[in-house]
Amino acid sequence: MTRNDLFSCMDAMDDEVLARSEKTTKTENNQRKPHGWWIAAAACFCLIAGFGAWGLFGSRTAADPNGSEVVAGIVDLDEDSFILDGQQNARYQRFTYEDFIRFGLLPEGTPDSDVYTLAAMCIVSDDSLGATLGTITTASKPELVGKTARQYKTASGDNVCIVESDGGYEFYYRKAILEQENAVAAYELLERAFGHDDLGYTLFPDDYAGSYIEGDKLVLLLTNVSEETQKKYKTWAAQYAGVLVFKEAEYSYNTLNDTADAISKDLEDKGYTITEYCVSETTNRIIIRVANCTSAQTSELKRALEEAYHVPVSIETVQGKWTTVTP
């Protein structure tokens, strides 16, 4: 089997999978979506996807028989990585050749070699060693468990650490993205609490206006941020309630979603080519992409739609491939 075989056979993905992947995009004129739910589902996807892979790793572990080692029931422990005592939210990933260059430990042009050789090439003096970061409690290589990780000072101050192993040194870096995993886990619990329709799509509560990750927090937009409402969401987020940040928004997600459907239909009936429409969860507005409109036309369209539908709308115009934007 070759990579070309594998690529060719990718066309075996069935229609349902392909259609699902297009939820945020309507790429042809006059195509009606089968139901009214796709924007909601798409935006839901945007949210979860925005969290990164950790959403995928999160809480799915029990249902993933092919998954690798499971840590704390939240994430897979990648190959060549470890967790330090008291730092459950951080994973340290072993350097590859590219990392030695990327973090400036070795100059560009250094011949590629195995990581032991590369580590040995880095001068480890007392000056370069910083504070003790902790003891390794879980590792993909069991022999690392119990060892101490020490900070390795780099010019850029990155989270690089060093572990003594097999008479040599191993370099690791802290994967910052993992800081989001609790926020991802929180969203997954929320989504589960929201419930789903028969097709598996999320049923958003009427006070829910969207959500997104900011740093290690899950920002929840709600039309009602009363203590009672916050308590409800915190209860749903259970042990991850601490990562929730509440912000008030004017329009519920369901309202924007339903309105976006109506606007799209309206515009298509009027002969516009809608290439895409969606709900922006960060700006609490509808985004419509219309093909081949002038800037003046999009401005007028935006004004007319906001007047008719009483929700904020952004119109973006698309010339062939998406090129210009008129917010």
Binding site: T24, F45, C46, A49, G50, A53, L56, I177, Y212
Partner: peptide, 16 residues
């Protein structure tokens, strides 16, 4: 852009 992810997130998902 389509799914509101960072490029790094996409790469991690694909790698997984």
């Amino acid at each position: 852009e389509r799914y509101g992810m960072t490029e790094n997130n996409v790469m991690v998902v694909l790698s997984h």
